[in-house]
Amino acid sequence: MTDFAEKHLVYCWIERGDAVLFIRRSAKGFLGGRWELPGGTVEPGEPQEAAAVREAAEETGLSVRVVGERSRHTWMDVEGRPLRIHARVYRVADDGHTEVVLNPDEHDECVWLPPARAVELDLVDHVRESLTQT
């Protein structure tokens, strides 16, 4: 039996009206050019909801609060390492008018789109799956 390390990721589903915030990963990094939700790795000992709030601030400059969980996803590492990834997508709220300020080391573009239109983006797989979950 193979033992796998576990990695936990969190993402933020930020809505304004009928649109959700999507951000594009910088071309030079992992999954470069693909679209995702704001989020990232949960630090050791960090509560997942706190990690979601922190990641939203780091990646978008937005101050958010968690209002619920939208979906959960699990997959094996895409590079073949003995690593199981667990991701949670949280519904979060912001003030509704603060401008998004991206961290240019990680993301190079953002867009607000209704989920039905977001299917046209080159989304990472777990974000695409979360479009139809509530």
Rank of each mutant, 00 (worst) to 15 (best):
V89K: 02
L31R: 11
R91P: 05
H107V: 07
R16A: 02
T74L: 10
E109Q: 10
P104D: 11
V92M: 12
D105L: 08
R54S: 07
A87R: 00
E49P: 06
V119A: 11
V127R: 01
L62C: 08
P82Y: 00
E106A: 10
G29P: 03
P47C: 10
P114V: 13
L121N: 07
R70Q: 08
P114K: 14
V53C: 04
E59H: 07
E6C: 03
V127N: 01
D108C: 13
T60G: 01
V67N: 02
V100S: 09
R70S: 04
T98D: 14
D94M: 04
I85T: 03
D77K: 11
R84E: 12
H107T: 04
A116E: 14
T41H: 15
R88K: 12
E6G: 03
E59K: 13
C110L: 07
E120D: 15
P38F: 02
P44G: 01
L83I: 15
R81I: 15
A50F: 01
G96V: 03
V10W: 00
D122V: 06
D3G: 06
A51I: 01
W35R: 05
D94T: 00
D3K: 07
F22T: 11
L21R: 09
R117V: 13
P114C: 08
A50H: 00
T74Y: 14
G32I: 08
M76E: 14
I23V: 15
P114N: 14
F4M: 12
